[in-house]
Each structure stands twice: as structure tokens, then as C-alpha cells.
Design a protein around this nucleic acid. Structure first.
Length: 848
DNA sequence: ATTAGGACTTAGGATTATAATA
DNA sequence: TATTATAATCCTAAGTCCTAAT
């Protein structure tokens, strides 16, 4: 292993990161004795019985807890308590003023970071699947021979009336398939083996996707039984990752190479591949990994028994993996193509199913491969070994009369069910968190599309009701009953700040919160009516905003925070998401906490889009407006992303680019003055220096310009020679090259002179008019570049994708595209167009 | 009435493909 | 033409909400 110095240095991620972070405590093999510490434990909370909102005024009467007092909520919950890690970077910021109206948290502070503190671990013995290794081959997705008639699950005459069919893009093979031909294909597909070289020919470019599509969104479709999801479902099962093949590279233990059996090597490799990443340096991750690694090493009687993480050196394996990656990257074209074909074949086989006779895409047909669990934030189990899933653990869901896909050789399925009230095709239990995993249809499928549609329709229904709902909770803010007050306050926050509901979480998960699970330490109050929120939300993404809130909300929170309460206690000590949602249901059918996010996101988007889109504008300007509106939504929903590694460098580059443009401007101005010195008086602006453009920089810039010029000349010379060679002409000599280069030297001298005298003659046909025209163009380019820069900067930690995919009603976009003549593909990628095909038929005046 | 866990949506990061540059 | 930035896609963790079990 040669090159060992090109270590992929640590991680970027100035975002998250924050404070304290892990203490020095490094993992310690020996005892996993490691006490989990009292963390996460806090004294039971007594119910707070408030007597009044105290001091100042307040018409509000005495607030008392309702009768139920007795029922001692005795939250057995428990949470960190004490030692809250401190966050780094705080930045304050203005507080949004604009009170009313839907939107929320206009400008709010953003920053974020991860929590620190907390080690822990615990890794109880886990079951070891692992049966006999089974003769591999597994890989080959044995095919279904049985093409028996049974497969023929015809579209059951389809319930609904007129079966609207449409063609997606490209109307080819017009007639063709009727139900029959389709089922025929179905039958065929079901038995087609992937990898059979036969299927190679296609792969082609994408498209293909013509096929008739069932345009469910064009049918009247007054809900016909919601719970039944299909009448027939035929599919090919799931794909299992190939068995592990040993690479034989030895890791070091106490500096010496040791031999690992394949199973152990596999786990070592999981860790090795993460070396130098945040994960591998996370003590919790190390601890959990090592605990599992140690166990499996022991089980396989690894020679020097592995007991100390610190004595392990995985770098040889790491380097091997890097080399493999390199190799893959540099693979020959043909090999790459072959790989692609294999994938396509798999896609064709497993990636497709038949739902009520219609061909539909399957989403994640691959069984998740074994790996180290990568929990986010401070997940107590991060690093734990996620075991390989065996077919015996997998249950399939399909039609009664559908052929059962064959399990991998030597294996059988865990179960076969025929539950048409479920949308999943397969399911299994994962070992780390004991959670259930599923194989679902792809996002573009009818099932997903329909529920997406429903989601947005509910949000639109809320639009109609929101006025009344808001009035109601504003009133409830002053209710005498504590529970009602809390509920109303929570609703306010969810509505105005787009918070998530905030279900309770377990001890074995990262400590994150949503609205109902906010604790005291997450909210601080500032005099008149300002709220500082600071907590970790979903995915341990920091939510840090400062907002002005309604007076009564401020009072309420002060009230909730008062007294017996202390850090670690719930802010809403008698409110559960279930109760909140139950209440919401009573206000509007289908209303739950998350609907507010959808509603506010879509509403804000439509509003901003309307406001920002220029009526007369270039395509680019319109797109900018679109992205701005999109970004507003992303900010509202607190969708963040890590700042990319090279961000700062890229910014510098852009700044330099702008300087270069300014330099050109400067030169042009001088040319004008050289041509027409009288203008000095008339147009004094020509004398003004460009901002941020220093002499020193210009000198340097000219040097690089000349360097580039020389390179270009040389390239030209070489190219010319190449051409001549081909034409059997005699090549240009070095001398000629030197001759050519002399011109650059000349130009360099000119520049030097220009710099000294300030006179810039300009090119041949130089005229004041031409220069002015160019100046204008440069101004445009500078403006555009600067806009792009601002855009980039603002965007660096904001992720637009999530809101576009999940929160913004696609019909708003479709209508907008129509209205402003913007091609859809500028807005939606191919997959998004597919996912949203149900929304693409709206008129240009459609409103959310 | 609570709790547990099933089923489905939402989420950011990792990986891969494509576009922009050097 | 190779390199690098960016966009698209893939992956699977982490939420929400609901229903069934206790």
C-alpha cells in the first residue's frame, strides 16, 4: 500500500457540529460496564396547578387545571435534564414583525449544530441469523418458471367507470395494448430473468416510459372504499444483496497483521470504509461498532483475541477499499456499460409489478444490505451492526392467485400474505431498532400519487377553514383550563412556525423534539413578546429562530415555564399529540398537525411566487423567482443541509470573477477617455474607480491573463501541428511558436505601459459608442454574477428539494409554468414529473 | 386510557450522472 | 479530455398518525 498520505481529511460540515460534542471519553473495550449515567432521567414532574397568569394585568382569570387533577400525569418520561450542551455560534437577528396572516417566521435566525454530550451504548446479544452460508449464487435472481395462467390477474373489469387512459410523453404505438396484451406482458415479465444476456439490447436511453398509464386523476372517483388498495398485485419479490466476498486484506492489531474470517472481515470493512468520517470518529459509534465487532471476532475465534479498539488499525482495509473505488472509477467504458446493463436488468425484473393489471414501478426492491447503523445526531445506537437480512425474515404481500416468487436457492420466505388493505409488497424486521421495513411502490405509482393528491386536497380544505380555526385557538389561548390553553398555544406554534407535532420518543433514540415535546430549555422569553426557540428537531437538525409572537402566547409560555418546572420538563406538560390531533379532527375532517405544514408551505409558495414573478421577464428571471419562493418555503420548514466542502473556495472564485469583470470595465473606461479625453468633464463617472478593485490585484490579474494567453498560444500551435501532421504538411517549428509568443510579450508590455500612463488605446475599431455598449453588457454580467453569488450564499445551507418534493402542491407549479410559458422540465426533474403527473393537467389559473 | 408497534410520509446524506470548466 | 461542480437519484433513518393490544 503505497500512498497512505492522501488521507481524506476529516469532514466538512461547519454546519451542525456545534459545541461541546463528545467529551474525551473514548471507548474502552474492556468493560462495557460503562454506566449510562443518570442522563435521560429526571424527576417525575408534578402537575402544575396554575393559579393565575400573575402580575400584570391579564384579563385572564384563574387558570386551573381541570378536574382531572388527580390523575397525576406523573410523566414517567424522562429526559436528559441537567447539562444541556451549549451551542456555539449564536447570532441574533431581527425579529419578524409582521404579525398576522399565515406565514410564519419570516426572517429568523438560523444556525445550527448538533448536540453534544451523552455516550452510552449497550449492546445486548442479538440474534445471529446466519445459517449455513448457503451456496452463494444467490445473486442470480432465479426466475419464475410458472407462467401459469393464474398469473393472469386481469384488471377485474375495473371498478370505476370510464377508464381514462393517457400517454405519458410521446404518443407512440398508439393502439396496441388493451388489457390483454398488457397481461400478456405481465406474464412474460414475471418470468424473465434479469442478467440473461438477452435483455441487454435495450437499456437505451430513458423514455421507454410510454405505455398507457391509468389516469386516475381524470376520473370522477368519489371515494370508493379507501382502505382497499388493490384487487390484484403481482410482483417478483425482492432482491437480496450478494453474499460477501472476502478481499483478504489484513487489518493490524497491535501493529501486526491478523487474519480474519470472512464474516469478521466484513464487519471490519464496514468500519474501515468509514474511516476519517464523522461517524468513525464518533465515540458512540466506535463503542457500538466495537462491541459488535469484538463479539463476532470472538465467535469466530479470531487469533489474537480482539479486546481493545485502540489496538485496531483498519487503514490497510481502508486503503484497499479506496483502491477498489478508484479502480471502479477508471473502469473501461465497456465494463461500465455492462454494469449499467446488469442494473437495468434488475430494474426490469424486480423494479416492476402489476397492480390491478397495470404495470407499476416498485420503489426500493433491494433488501437493505448489512452495514453499521448510521443513526443521526446523538443516536445511542449509532454504529451498531445491522445484520444481513435472510429470506426467512421477509414476508411478501401479493394476490392470492399470483405466483409466489421463488426465494433464493436453499431458502424460503418468512411468509406470504394477501392483504389488499396494505400497499407494501414485502416487509421485514430490522435488528438494530427492531423496526419494520417495507418495500413499497415507487413515488410515481398510482397509489402514491393518489395519497399525495389526497394530502394536498386536505391542505386546501384547511385553507378554507383556517380563518375560523385560528380565531378559535386565539380565543382558547385564554381559556381557563390549562389543557385547552396548552393546546391552543401548541396550535399557534404549529401554525405560525411550522413546527412538527412532536411525538414522544424512546430512550434509545436521539433526543429530538417537536412542538408537543418541547422542553423548558428550548424556549426562552424576551421582554415584550419575543420568543427564542432553540432545539434539535427531526434528524437532529437545529431549529433556532427568534420570533415575535402574540402577547397571549408569550404570557402562556411564561406561565407554562413558571415554577415547579425546571429544565428537562415538558413545556406542554399535559398535552399529547394524540389529543391535539383528536381536537383537530373535530375541527375539520382529516386535519392533523402535519397538515398545517403542508398548508402553510403551499400557501406561502403560491403567495410568494405570485409576488416575485416578473410579468415581463426572461426565463432566467422567472426561474429565479421560482427558486426564491421555493427557498422561502424551505426556510419556513427549516429544511437544512450541510454546507458543501468547497463552498468558501467557490465563493472566492465568484468574487474573483466579478473583479475580472470590473477590471474589464475599468479598461473600457480608460479607452473611452483615451479616445475622447474631453469626456473627463462631461462624464466624471468614467474616472471613478471600480469598487473593490485594487491596483495590486490588477497587476496580479494581468500576470495570470498573460499566462493564460501564452498557454492558449501554445495549445493553438500544438493543435495546428497535429492538423498538419495529419495532412502530411510540415510542422511548425519551435521558432514559429516563439514568434507567436512574442505577440503576448508585446501585449504584456502594452499593458504595463497602459498601467503607467493610464492611456488605453483599445483595439482597432474602438469607439466610444462601442465601449459604452460593452460597458452596459458588463454591468449586466456583473449584476447577474452578483445575483448568482447572493443566491448561492443564501442557499448554502438551505435544502430546497424537500419542500418541493413533499410540501408544495405541484399544481401550483404546473399552473405557473403554463401561465408564464416556462417549460416544466426547468422546474421538475424527470422523476418529479413522473411523481407529479397527476398534477400536470391543471389550467393556468388553477389556485391552491 | 395507555402503550406498542404497524404503515406510511418526510428527511438529509451518500452516491452517481451530467454539465461546466480547465 | 480530464477534472470538478452541480444536479439527480438512491438510500434508509426518522418522523407522523393510527389501530390493535393490554
Amino acid at each position: 500500500m503505497s500512498d497512505s498520505e492522501d488521507m481524506p481529511l476529516a469532514r466538512r460540515r461547519e454546519l451542525k457540529e456545534a459545541a461541546a460534542a463528545f467529551s474525551d471519553d473514548d471507548i474502552d473495550d474492556s468493560g462495557d460496564s460503562d454506566t449510562p449515567l443518570g442522563k435521560r432521567k429526571r424527576p417525575p414532574v408534578k402537575k402544575r396547578i396554575i393559579e393565575d397568569d400573575d402580575d400584570d394585568d391579564d384579563e385572564s382569570v384563574n387558570v386551573k387545571s381541570e378536574s382531572s387533577d388527580s390523575e397525576v400525569p406523573l410523566s414517567k418520561r424522562s429526559r436528559p435534564g441537567a447539562k444541556r450542551p451549549t451551542y456555539k455560534e449564536y447570532s441574533d437577528d431581527d425579529h419578524s414583525s409582521d404579525s398576522d396572516t399565515p406565514l410564519a417566521a419570516k426572517k429568523a435566525v438560523k444556525t445550527n449544530g448538533n448536540r453534544g454530550s451523552k455516550t452510552n451504548g449497550r449492546s445486548k446479544a442479538r440474534p445471529s441469523y446466519k445459517e449455513e452460508s448457503s451456496e452463494s449464487d444467490s445473486d442470480v435472481p432465479l426466475a419464475k418458471k410458472s407462467s401459469s395462467k393464474k398469473v393472469d390477474t386481469k384488471p377485474k373489469a375495473k371498478t370505476s367507470t370510464a377508464s381514462a387512459k393517457v400517454k405519458t410523453e410521446s404518443s407512440k404505438t398508439s393502439s396496441r395494448g388493451k388489457a390483454d396484451s398488457k397481461t400478456a406482458t405481465a406474464r412474460k415479465r414475471v418470468k424473465d430473468e434479469p442478467d440473461s444476456k438477452a435483455s441487454i439490447k435495450k437499456v437505451k436511453k430513458e423514455e421507454e416510459e410510454d405505455d398507457e398509464v391509468d389516469a386516475w386523476w381524470l376520473k370522477s372517483n368519489e371515494n370508493e372504499d379507501d382502505s382497499v388498495k388493490w384487487t390484484s398485485l403481482v410482483h417478483n419479490g425482492v432482491y437480496f444483496p450478494p453474499d460477501y466476498t472476502s478481499h483478504g486484506v489484513k487489518m493490524l492489531y497491535e501493529g501486526k497483521p491478523i487474519t480474519l474470517s470472512s464474516d469478521v472481515e466484513e464487519v471490519a470493512s464496514f468500519f474501515a470504509s468509514l474511516l476519517y468520517t464523522e461517524h468513525a470518529e464518533n465515540p458512540t459509534f466506535q463503542k457500538n461498532f466495537f462491541s459488535d465487532f469484538k463479539a463476532i471476532a470472538k465467535k469466530h475465534k479470531t487469533v489474537p483475541s480482539i479486546t481493545d479498539f485502540k489496538k485496531c488499525d483498519f487503514t490497510p482495509i481502508y486503503e484497499h477499499i479506496q483502491r477498489q473505488k478508484d479502480k471502479k472509477k477508471n473502469m473501461s467504458k465497456e465494463d461500465k456499460l455492462k454494469l449499467k446493463e446488469q442494473k437495468a436488468a434488475l430494474d426490469e425484473f424486480y423494479g416492476v409489478c402489476y397492480l390491478d393489471g397495470r404495470k407499476e414501478k416498485v420503489g426500493n426492491y433491494r433488501i437493505e444490505p448489512p452495514d453499521l447503523f448510521r443513526g443521526r445526531g446523538q443516536h445511542p445506537k449509532t454504529g451498531t451492526l445491522k445484520l444481513r437480512v435472510q429470506p426467512e425474515q421477509v414476508t411478501l404481500n401479493l394476490s392470492k392467485d399470483a405466483p409466489v416468487p421463488k426465494a433464493p436457492l436453499g431458502h424460503s420466505w418468512g411468509g406470504i400474505v394477501h392483504d389488499n388493505t396494505k400497499t407494501w409488497l414485502a416487509t421485514w424486521k430490522e435488528n438494530v431498532n427492531d423496526s419494520t421495513k417495507y418495500v413499497f411502490l415507487a413515488a410515481g405509482s398510482s397509489l402514491k400519487g393518489q395519497s399525495d393528491f389526497k394530502k394536498f386536497e386536505t391542505a386546501r380544505a384547511l385553507k378554507k377553514e383556517v380563518g375560523g380555526i385560528r380565531r378559535a385557538y386565539m380565543t382558547d389561548l385564554k381559556d381557563k383550563k390549562m389543557f385547552i390553553r396548552q393546546r391552543a398555544t401548541a396550535m399557534y406554534l404549529i401554525d405560525r412556525l411550522a413546527l412538527r407535532a412532536g411525538n414522544e420518543k424512546g430512550e434509545d433514540e436521539a433526543d429530538t423534539v417537536g412542538c408537543c415535546s418541547l422542553r423548558f430549555e428550548h424556549v426562552t422569553l424576551e421582554k415584550p413578546n419575543i420568543l427564542h426557540l432553540d432545539f434539535l428537531g427531526k434528524d437532529s437538525i437545529r431549529f433556532q429562530k427568534t420570533v415575535e409572537v402574540d402577547e397571549q402566547v408569550f404570557k402562556n409560555i411564561r406561565l407554562f415555564k413558571r415554577e415547579p418546572a425546571q429544565e428537562g420538563d415538558d413545556l406542554f406538560d399535559r398535552l399529547k399529540t394524540a389529543e391535539l390531533n383528536k381536537h383537530l379532527q373535530s375541527l375539520m375532517k382529516g386535519l392533523t398537525a402535519k397538515v398545517f405544514r403542508t398548508y402553510n408551505a403551499s400557501f406561502t409558495f403560491q403567495e410568494q411566487l405570485e409576488k416575485l414573478t416578473p410579468t415581463e421577464g426572461t426565463l432566467a428571471e422567472k426561474l429565479l423567482a421560482y427558486n426564491r419562493a421555493n427557498r422561502d418555503v424551505a426556510i419556513l420548514c427549516n429544511h437544512q443541509r450541510a454546507v458543501s466542502k468547497g463552498h468558501a473556495v467557490q465563493m472566492d472564485k465568484i468574487i474573483d470573477k466579478i473583479r475580472a469583470l470590473k477590471y474589464q470595465k475599468y479598461k473600457l473606461k480608460r479607452t473611452i477617455l483615451t479616445l475622447e479625453p474631453k469626456l473627463k468633464k462631461k462624464r466624471p463617472e468614467l474616472l471613478e474607480p471600480e469598487s473593490d478593485l485594487e491596483d495590486e490585484w490588477m497587476v496580479e490579474h494581468e500576470v495570470t491573463l498573460m499566462e493564460k494567453e501564452r498557454e492558449k498560444t501554445r495549445a493553438k500551435w500544438e493543435k495546428e501541428n497535429l492538423r498538419r501532421k495529419e495532412n502530411k504538411e510540415k510542422a511548425m517549428t519551435e521558432k514559429e511558436l516563439k514568434e507567436m509568443l512574442k505577440e503576448v510579450d508585446l501585449r504584456e508590455k502594452e499593458l504595463a505601459k497602459e498601467r503607467k500612463t493610464g492611456n488605453v488605446p483599445g483595439g482597432k475599431g474602438a469607439s466610444v459608442e462601442k465601449c459604452d455598449a460593452q460597458l452596459l453588457k458588463l454591468d449586466d454580467r456583473i449584476a447577474a454574477t452578483r445575483a448568482a453569488m447572493v443566491d448561492k450564499e443564501e442557499n448554502k445551507q438551505t435544502a430546497l428539494g424537500t419542500s418541493k418534493i413533499n410540501y408544495i402542491d405541484p399544481r401550483i407549479s404546473a399552473a405557473w409554468c403554463q401561465k408564464h410559458k416556462v417549460p416544466l422540465e426547468k422546474i421538475f426533474t424527470k422523476t418529479l414529473r413522473d411523481k407529479f403527473k397527476w398534477a400536470m393537467t391543471v389550467d393556468d389559473d388553477w389556485e391552491f
